[in-house]
C-alpha cells in the first residue's frame, strides 16, 4: 500500500535518482505542476521519486524570524531527501531555501555539514533540466505569444534566467516577449503580501501593467507564489491574460484551466 512506503517512484536501473520536492503551493493549489515536473524529469532520463513525507520547506517560518521552527522543518526535509542523487523543485523560491538558506539556517548546529552536502543536490526544475540533464529543447509545440516572469529567488539566488527561456524558445510556434523592468519583484514575498498588503498591491500593480504592456496571451513563471499573486491581480483587473507555471507548457499539460481562471487555453494552442 502506498501509505506504507516512504516514497512513490517507478524504479529504473542506472538512471539519476531524482526526488521531486513538489512544494506546498503546488501540492495544495496546482497539482498539475507536480505531474508536469515528473513528466519532464522522466523525459530527461531521470528516475523520479516523490517522498511522501514532504510538507513545507520552512520558508514562511524562516522569513518571519522563527528560526527554530525553520530549523526543525529543514532537518526533516534533509532527512527525507538526502538519500537521492538530486532534489528538484518546480520553484526557485523553495529550491533557494533548500540550497542557499538551509546551510545558513543550520550553520550553528551539528547538522551544518549535512546541510552543505544536501545543498549540492538541490536544483530548480528548469535549471536542472538544462544545466544538469543537458536538455536543450523540448519536442513539443505551443502556438502563442507568452511572457515570462523571473521570480526573485530563482533569479538572484540560483541564477535561473536563461534556462526556462531556452526550453520555451525550443517549443514550435512559441513567441516570447520580455517584460519591461523584468527583474522587479511582483510583490508576493510570502507573508509580506499579507503583512503589507497595500505596498504589495502597489508592486503587483506595476508588474501587471508591464505584463499587459508585453501584449501577450499568457504569463508563465516558475514559482506558484508569484504566479498566484499576479494571476489574482490580473483576474481582479478583468484581464484576459492566462497565468500558468512554465512546467505545464513545457510538458504539454495545459488542459487544466489557468491559475485563477475559468476556461482552458484561449489563445495558446498546445500541439
Amino acid at each position: 500500500m502506498a501509505e506504507n512506503i516512504n516514497s512513490l517512484h517507478v524504479p529504473q536501473v542506472g538512471l539519476p535518482r531524482v526526488a521531486l520536492y513538489v512544494t506546498c503551493l503546488v501540492d495544495l493549489f496546482r497539482p498539475v505542476v507536480g505531474f508536469a515536473a515528473m513528466k519532464l524529469l522522466q523525459e530527461a532520463g531521470c528516475e523520479v521519486s516523490v517522498p511522501l513525507t514532504q510538507t513545507c520547506c520552512g520558508q514562511p517560518a524562516y522569513n518571519s524570524g522563527d528560526r527554530q521552527a525553520a530549523q526543525e522543518l529543514a532537518i526533516e526535509v534533509i532527512k527525507n531527501f538526502e538519500s537521492f542523487d538530486y532534489v528538484v523543485a518546480p520553484s526557485g523560491s523553495c529550491a533557494g531555501m533548500l540550497k542557499t538558506h538551509y546551510p545558513e539556517l543550520l550553520k550553528d548546529t551539528d547538522q551544518y555539514e549535512r546541510a552543505i552536502s544536501f545543498a549540492d543536490k538541490v536544483f530548480e526544475l528548469t535549471s536542472f533540466l538544462v544545466d544538469k540533464c543537458g536538455l536543450q529543447s523540448v519536442d513539443r509545440g505551443f502556438a502563442g505569444r507568452i511572457t515570462y516572469h523571473d521570480a526573485c529567488a530563482g533569479l538572484r539566488e540560483l541564477n535561473v534566467k536563461q534556462q526556462p527561456r531556452a526550453l520555451l524558445n525550443s517549443l514550435r510556434g512559441l513567441e516570447l516577449s520580455e517584460l519591461s523592468d523584468g527583474e522587479a519583484c511582483c510583490g508576493f514575498g510570502g507573508m509580506f503580501c499579507v503583512k503589507y498588503p497595500e505596498i504589495s498591491d502597489a508592486m503587483v500593480s506595476k508588474k501587471c501593467a508591464n505584463i499587459e504592456a508585453a501584449n501577450t496571451q499568457m504569463l508563465l513563471g516558475g514559482d506558484m507564489g508569484c504566479l498566484m499573486n499576479m494571476a489574482g491581480k490580473l483576474s481582479r483587473d478583468g484581464s484576459s491574460i492566462e497565468v500558468r507555471h512554465v512546467a505545464e507548457i513545457l510538458a504539454g499539460m495545459s488542459d487544466e484551466p489557468p491559475i485563477a481562471g475559468m476556461k482552458g487555453p484561449k489563445q495558446g494552442k498546445q500541439k
Binding site: 498539475v32 503583512k195 494571476a231 491581480k233 483576474s235 481582479r236
Partner: peptide, 12 residues
C-alpha cells in the same frame, strides 16, 4: 489583506 486588492486563486 490579499483579497482587498486581488483575487485569491482557488485550489484545483
Amino acid at each position: 489583506g490579499w483579497t482587498n486588492s486581488r483575487d485569491l486563486p482557488a485550489p484545483s
